[in-house]
């Protein structure tokens, strides 16, 4: 499943980050690593971008970019 398909409040585990070169590298450097838990905090009022919580901090990503992140183990809100 893709990260962009998650609804607000859902949490999932990163399996793999796709996409090319610098973008992929940047995402990994920001902590989108295999096994990392990512929670979808909310979508912006205009439905794009989305706000995520991982490793204890908040980061925003465009929906089309989040489509490059494969996730698994989707579950509803923990917090």
């Amino acid at each position: 499943m893709r990260l962009s398909e998650l609804r607000e409040g859902q949490t999932a585990t990163v399996v793999r980050v796709g996409g090319g070169g610098p973008f992929r590298r940047r995402l990994l450097e920001m902590g989108f690593l295999r096994g990392t838990e990512v929670c979808v905090e909310k979508y912006a009022p205009l439905k794009d971008p989305m706000e995520l919580i991982l490793k204890g901090y908040h980061v925003s990503l465009r929906v089309e970019e989040a489509a490059n992140v494969d996730v698994e183990g989707v579950r509803d809100g923990e917090r």
Partner: peptide, 9 residues
């Protein structure tokens, strides 16, 4: 440019 932006506290 990708929109990987931190939302700091």
């Amino acid at each position: 440019a990708p929109f990987v932006m931190e939302l700091p506290p």
